[in-house]
Amino acid sequence: MAKRIEVKDLDIYYDKFLAVQGVSMTIQPRSVTALIGPSGCGKSTFLRTLNRMHELVPNARVEGSVVMDDDDLYGPNVDPVNVRRQIGMVFQRANPFPTMSIYDNVAAGLKLNNKRLKKSDMDGLVERSLKSANLWEEVKDRLHKPGSGLSGGQQQRLCIARAIAVQPEVLLMDEPCSALDPISTQAIEDLMLELKENYTIVIVTHNMQQAARVSDTTGFFNLQGVGKPGELVEIDETTKIFSTPSQKATEDYISGRFG
């Protein structure tokens, strides 16, 4: 588990519109990489290219390469479905399946991968996933109640449990705490620090304190200008980005000065 991702000269297009240009970065295994930057600069778009979710938008495409260990994620015979089974994702708004129970939500991905999993094995995997997501104690007595009955923070941890149940190599998180209160946010942040022992984590966040608290590496995205594509300004160790960034734009952004 936990693989390295190499991104090289990645351009992301929506039809003819170039949204993000020339991104190159190395995402280290067993670490948290945070992506920060103003709204609309393409960090979420970039995140979604890592598991090929951006392809859901008609005519979206990329140029350049994304390689996980030795597998080219955009190789000619690569099925995006298989990519997504290795690279899980957690979204901005918690999205447990409303028609499924807590148990079935966690088991959903497992059922896709192994059709013939024994009930006892399934129970074990669901329990382990919920424990990894620090949710087990809160839900163990109501596993067969609907997941939509949980609080927002619990729902988000349920989504994390669902994502890690299939044991992905990488976990992508797209502003996972932006709809949560501080206590739930703290719970998710603690969880990220535990999960990075086993997973490669990439998180997009608008909260710079959060990036500083949880990440090992931070990348700063910005627009090249009005109406121009977004770009990766710099990426470095989080402590360095937040103390002595090498680019002025980064320093302006993290210190709250613009323009």
Partner: peptide, 21 residues
């Protein structure tokens, strides 16, 4: 909801599996 369709696809569902989930 787009949200739930993406949730299914993100855990590696095919289009048919997404429809079923």
């Amino acid at each position: 909801p787009q949200l739930h369709q993406e949730a299914a696809l993100a855990i590696g569902a095919t289009r048919w599996e997404m429809i079923r989930m």
